[in-house]
């Protein structure tokens, strides 16, 4: 089946982002297609590549990036959620004259149209709320 996973939670705030990660990894392991990962509200912090947890801790941001890269997933961070929270790609950092871009290279900033499209084209959408 084609599944879309919608993530509302940041790492370290609630457990939901980690639940979403485990659900996604299990769906891929079972042979399902992940049509899109959509990170919304505080969920955009999952795409903040500047996150640097202690080395002996599970690194959720890194784990998402590796999962996305390995399976060539389409991972979208909501652009208006991300800009408010300081998760910018190079283009937005230049546009808003910010010192650094922090969006991970495996993620793309885009709008809610991508969520509407995912709802229409996926067999199932699973939300993980904060």
């Amino acid at each position: 089946m084609k599944l879309t996973v919608l993530v509302y939670s940041a790492p370290y705030s609630t457990e939901a982002a980690y639940s979403a990660y485990r659900f996604t990894a299990s769906a891929l392991a079972a042979g399902h297609e992940i049509y899109r990962l959509f990170f919304y509200y505080d969920g955009v912090h999952n795409s903040n590549a500047s996150s640097a947890p202690p080395q002996d801790e599970f690194d959720l941001v890194k784990a998402w990036s590796e999962l996305i890269k390995t399976h060539k997933l389409d991972a979208i961070s909501c652009v208006s959620s991300a800009l408010r929270r300081g998760v910018l790609d190079a283009q937005e950092a230049a546009r808003y004259e910010k010192e650094a871009a922090s969006l991970g290279s495996q993620f793309v900033l885009s709008g809610l149209g991508q969520l509407v499209d995912a709802n229409a084209k996926s067999d199932r959408v699973m939300s993980f709320g904060a």
């Binding site: 769906a27 199932r124 709320g129």
Partner: peptide, 20 residues
């Protein structure tokens, strides 16, 4: 259940609602 069955449940049901 484990995550594998969670995925199966998501597929068996036509839709899902997350209460949070």
């Amino acid at each position: 259940i484990g995550y594998a069955q969670f995925v199966e449940l998501a597929c068996e049901h036509q839709r899902s609602v997350s209460w949070f």
